[in-house]
Deep mutational scan, measured.
Amino acid sequence: NQASVVANQLIPIQTALTLVMMRSEVVTPVGIPAEDIPRLVSMQVNRAVPLGTTLMPDMVKGYA
């Protein structure tokens, strides 16, 4: 099973992502693949992302 990127904390809207905000976890449905974590650093979320939420491509500006 492929690991996805999951929020390690509440990430407020417009926040630039850092490594400490994300973790990898095998979840359903599958979100952004964990191997993309380095690419996500400094990208902004376009909505508030609660703790434990799987990051989906449409939540990160410039990802999809």
Rank of each mutant, 00 (worst) to 15 (best):
N1K: 12
N1A: 15
Q2A: 12
A3W: 12
S4G: 04
S4P: 01
V5G: 01
V6C: 04
V6Q: 03
A7F: 03
A7W: 03
N8K: 10
Q9T: 12
Q9H: 09
L10W: 13
L10K: 09
L10P: 11
I11V: 06
I11Q: 00
I11P: 00
I11W: 02
P12T: 07
I13Q: 15
I13G: 12
I13E: 15
Q14D: 15
Q14I: 04
Q14F: 12
T15P: 01
L17A: 01
L17V: 03
L17M: 12
L17Y: 02
L19A: 08
L19I: 12
L19V: 11
V20H: 14
M21E: 02
M21C: 04
M21V: 03
M21Q: 03
M22F: 08
R23D: 05
R23L: 06
E25T: 07
E25D: 11
V26H: 13
T28I: 13
T28R: 12
P29Y: 04
G31D: 01
G31Y: 03
G31F: 02
P33N: 08
A34Y: 06
A34I: 06
A34T: 07
A34L: 04
D36L: 12
D36S: 11
I37F: 03
I37S: 03
I37T: 06
P38Y: 11
P38A: 10
R39A: 08
L40R: 00
L40D: 02
L40H: 00
L40C: 04
V41G: 01
V41M: 06
V41K: 03
S42E: 10
S42D: 14
M43I: 04
M43A: 07
M43H: 09
M43S: 06
Q44H: 11
Q44S: 13
V45A: 04
V45D: 04
V45N: 01
V45K: 00
N46G: 08
N46W: 09
R47A: 10
R47K: 12
A48W: 12
V49S: 02
P50T: 09
P50V: 06
P50R: 12
L51N: 14
L51D: 15
L51R: 12
G52C: 04
G52P: 00
T54F: 02
M56S: 07
P57W: 14
D58N: 10
D58L: 07
D58G: 10
D58F: 11
M59E: 00
M59I: 05
V60T: 02
V60W: 02
V60M: 05
V60C: 03
K61A: 08
G62V: 04
Y63K: 01
Y63E: 03
Y63N: 03
Y63I: 05
A64F: 12
A64D: 10
